[in-house]
Simulated scan of single mutants.
Amino acid sequence: MQKNKSDKIIHKEKGSFFIPGKENTVFSPPENEYFLNKNSLSGEWIRAGELDFHADIFAAYTCVSTMDALDLIVNSRIQSDIRKYVSFVSETQSGGRGQHKRTWISKKGNLYASVKIPFVFSGEWSENFLPLIMGNLVSGVLKEFGINTDIKWPNDIIYSGRKLGGILVEKKKNYYNVGIGLNLDNSPDDCELESFFSLPAVSLREKNINISNPFTFWNILFEHIFYFFNKRLAKEKPFALINDLTQKLLWLDEEVFVKDYSGKVSKMTLAGLSGDGGLILHNDSGKKVLYSAMIRAVSFQ
């Protein structure tokens, strides 16, 4: 393979970058060197290896955006198998983004990761479920650490009434690029909120909960993601997920402000989830199911 001066090497490394002492059982070193164009990415890059469930993890100390880095990898010579699950995780981001292109503040110590989901939604499973599925998986892994969370439809992880993290889904030609951010160590100040519908943030460290290694946490979460889409989803029906999510749904049966896709703001009662992942709301004018909206409890101060 010819090296171009504009390319940046992804150094061959063992998995010790992720889980010290387990590199021989969790990761295998890559057979070849790989290259990324430095005009699209920044920082020193590592192909951490292949997990024992046959999915690739790429890692970085810094990047512009894990979403952009993942797209570049998936659409390059580095990773050409469209059926394979791939993820990219970084210590920091200089240009991270959240829902509606909002800036995602990305200081060291938190989790910043993106994962390629090559799953094809069909039948009873609508792609509207994807952010909810991912939120439920994140919530499930956090529960393994003794952390109980709620889900603010459609894509926020809530802890103690504040935003702990979020999910961003971007649909591509042959896959979904799903970004996940979690405030493990620090969180933005309240003055940095960009919208009336944005909740104040919280980090686990602020609540005296210590998950010191975001890469270790991602390794666990990525395995849960892979297992769910490859083993569980084909055997489950949407109603099981809906029932599970309804128990975690923030502001269920409460009156909320709703800003729909047209920009109109109204007051409605949050009634639950529809069979295809939409949000059910009602008021004196009747019932409505929304698939794109921002919400905030009327009672929230």
Rank of each mutant, 00 (worst) to 15 (best):
Phe119Lys: 13
Lys259Pro: 02
Tyr291His: 14
Pro131Asp: 08
Pro131Gly: 13
Phe53Ala: 06
Phe229Ala: 00
Arg77Pro: 05
Lys101Leu: 11
Ile105Cys: 00
Gly96Gln: 06
Thr216Ala: 14
Met268His: 14
Pro188Phe: 08
Arg102Thr: 12
Ile220Asn: 07
Leu233Cys: 03
Leu137Phe: 03
Asn283Cys: 12
Ser195Glu: 10
Ile225Asn: 04
Ser126Trp: 03
Leu241Gly: 04
Arg232Trp: 08
Gly43Val: 06
Lys3Glu: 11
Ile19Ala: 15
Ser122Pro: 03
Trp251Ile: 00
Ile78Met: 07
Val169Glu: 06
Ser42Trp: 00
Leu72Met: 12
Phe58His: 05
Asp244Thr: 11
Gly278Tyr: 05
Glu13Met: 13
Ser122Cys: 10
Asp150Lys: 14
Glu44Asn: 15
Ser203Trp: 08
Gly146Val: 04
Val169Thr: 13
Val86Arg: 07
Lys287Thr: 13
Glu31Gln: 11
Thr62His: 12
Asp150Asn: 15
Pro29Met: 06
Asn4Met: 09
Leu142Gly: 04
Lys3Ala: 08
Val202His: 04
Ser76Leu: 05
Val265Thr: 15
Glu127Asn: 14
Ile157Ser: 08
Val298Lys: 11
Phe217Lys: 00
Tyr175Ser: 01
Asn174Ala: 08
Thr25Gly: 00
Asn210Leu: 11
Ile225Thr: 08
Thr66Asp: 01
Phe257Gln: 03
Asn4Leu: 14
Gly278Cys: 07
Leu241Thr: 01
Arg205Trp: 00
Lys287Arg: 13
Gly263Asn: 07
Met134Gly: 06
Phe121Met: 05
Ala59Trp: 03
Val120Pro: 03
Glu91Met: 08
Asn32Gly: 01
Leu279Gly: 10
His282Glu: 12
Lys287Ala: 13
Glu170Met: 02
Trp153Arg: 04
His100Met: 10
Gly263Lys: 02
Tyr175His: 07
Ser203Val: 02
Thr62Gln: 13
Ile157Cys: 10
Ser203Tyr: 05
Ser187Thr: 05
Leu51Ala: 05
Gln99Arg: 15
Leu221Thr: 02
Phe53Asp: 14
Lys22Cys: 09
Asn174Ser: 13
Ser40Leu: 15
Glu127His: 12
Glu44Lys: 15
Phe53Arg: 14
Gly277Thr: 02
Asn32Trp: 01
Lys14Gln: 01
Arg97Leu: 08
Ile147Ala: 07
